[in-house]
Design a protein around this nucleic acid. Structure first.
Length: 446
RNA sequence: GGAUCGGUGCCCGAGUGGUUAAUGGGGGCGGACUGUAAAUCCGCUGGCUACGCCUACGUUGGUUCAAAUCCAACCCGGUCCA
């Protein structure tokens, strides 16, 4: 370990992967202009704000880096203030498309919030007292009356609002901008006032909103927060930002195998950033080869959410399954054994299951990594295409038909060729794996 | 409030009475190939346990044997004028 040469290395965890901190006056000793000084000089835990809108239910890696940063603050002894934007969700952050969001019921909000918390549990410290505070912003926003709202509105001008990137573009293009959308940054900013935040985390697209928070805190006599901006993660397609609607995402609640198989394809151009933002590995200790890096990345990330063991199994499974090779997932422990270019599969008790003709390593992943599908609700006899859609591998039965015709569906490694294929009873299917494309699998259980 | 243009499938965008589930492009998804991915080539890209049936061209009614295409009202967006 060398001695930190400059001030900015005093908090390596703070700087890893970030895009920007503002305000940022490196030379300043003022805790209002230099976050490190605030960290050093404060005699209490700082309040670190992160807001999420409970509009959907899935959190993906693109969100995770914010939570990971939040965790770093927790580990440094500070308080994470997680704000569930149940009130703001009714408007929607007008960064993207101009769709008026549907109002969420209380039940939906509660359900979504719970799902969120469950998903971020592997990231945040939920257990140490004083490290996590969860708040709903309807708590204060629903109580604002018109005079107070006017006070908020009066802090900003139309010109300032239009300076915001999204608005500017839309205004220029002639897309509709509704007045209530102007309220969004103000409400988010008011959250900062309400929870008296010292630092607010957000993506780079949040800069304007975080800055509004500073303005409002100043307006209400508080010390303005710092804004800490994290990059917007590019999705697995290597082009657009990671987003559920685009589909280039890796969800935190996905099974180990699909997580792994997506991540092991991470484009080379993105791999360093992924390591930096999504893992804690020192960047100077990464594997050499491009392929090895992909594997390591996938292994690391899957381990974080599904555990090391499942990650290792997924890694082995992916190699075999993606190749469209033999699929004999029995969920039992198997020792690969080479016999004249072939492999045999053994059950846990040592009995030979079936010879497998393949010159690749045969693997049997454990049950955790392939989603299970219960045949109980299925009426037999059942047609193959119906099974494919019912099991969740694809959305509609029409789509299932097309996939079968296109040769994309395999049962235990055998390509399904006929649409008319019918299964008479569950016994034909239990324990077998149905595969669509290269990385969608499901294992039938009774 | 007035004038004018426009609202088509995930997106863009053809089509102005009938072989139209609707040309084309993008995107997406599959297949082949490369031990991943990318590139390339090929296929698919409303729904339905399905050789038939049902929904679709802003909404609702209407005119027709027949409408995305004609008419009316309404809703929504753009632009210009007040």
């Amino acid at each position: 370990m060398s001695i930190a040469p400059s001030m900015s290395n005093s908090f390596p965890w703070l700087h890893r992967g970030i895009h920007e901190i503002f305000p940022d006056q490196p030379e300043s000793k003022s805790p209002d202009e230099n976050l490190e000084q605030r960290l050093i000089q404060s005699n209490r835990p700082l309040r670190i704000k992160l807001g999420i809108d409970p509009t959907g239910t899935d959190i993906h890696l693109g969100h995770s880096l914010l939570f990971r940063k939040l965790r770093s603050f927790q580990d440094a002894g500070h308080t994470a203030v997680l704000i569930i934007g149940d009130f703001t969700a009714r408007i929607g952050d007008p960064t993207g498309k101009s769709e008026v969001r549907k109002q969420l019921t209380e039940e939906q909000v509660a359900a979504n919030a719970e799902t969120y918390l469950k998903q971020v549990r592997p990231i945040l410290d939920f257990d140490t007292p004083g490290r996590l505070e969860v708040r709903y912003n309807s708590e204060w926003l629903s109580k604002l009356d018109l005079p107070q709202t006017l006070e908020l509105l009066a802090t900003m001008t139309v010109g300032q609002m239009l300076a915001k990137e999204g608005f500017a573009e839309r205004y220029k293009q002639g897309t509709a901008i509704y007045l209530h959308e102007f309220l969004y940054p103000l409400m988010q900013g008011y959250d900062s006032v309400a929870v008296q935040s010292d630092v607010e985390l957000g993506g780079t697209d949040q800069k304007f909103n975080l800055a509004v928070g500073r303005d409002l805190q100043r307006h209400f006599g508080q010390t303005p927060q710092f804004g800490l901006l994290m990059p917007i993660l590019i999705g697995t397609d290597g082009v657009q930002k990671m987003s559920k609607s685009i589909g280039n995402y890796v969800g935190l609640s996905e099974d180990a195998l699909s997580m792994y198989s997506k991540l092991e394809k991470t484009p080379d151009a993105l791999i360093l950033q992924y390591f930096e933002l999504l893992t804690d590995l020192p960047l100077d200790q990464l594997p050499e080869g491009a392929r090895d890096r992909q594997k390591r990345l996938a292994l690391e990330i899957v381990s974080q959410y599904r555990g090391r063991e499942a990650a290792l199994d997924a890694q082995k499974a992916a190699g075999e399954l993606v190749r469209g090779g033999i699929v004999q997932l029995r969920g039992s422990i198997v020792q690969p054994q080479s016999i004249t270019g072939s492999l045999i599969v053994k059950e846990a008790d040592g009995s030979v299951l079936s010879p497998v003709v393949s010159d690749t390593t045969f693997i049997v992943p454990n049950d955790d990594i392939v989603p299970k599908f219960s045949l109980a609700p299925i009426q037999f006899p059942v047609k193959a295409f119906y099974l494919v859609s019912a099991s969740g591998l694809c959305k509609t039965s029409s789509e299932a038909r097309r996939h079968i015709q296109g040769g994309a569906v395999r049962l235990e490694g055998d390509k399904l060729t006929s649409l008319d294929l019918t299964f008479e009873s569950p016994d034909e299917l239990v324990g077998k794996v149905l595969q669509l494309g290269k990385n969608k699998f499901v294992r039938f259980v009774p």
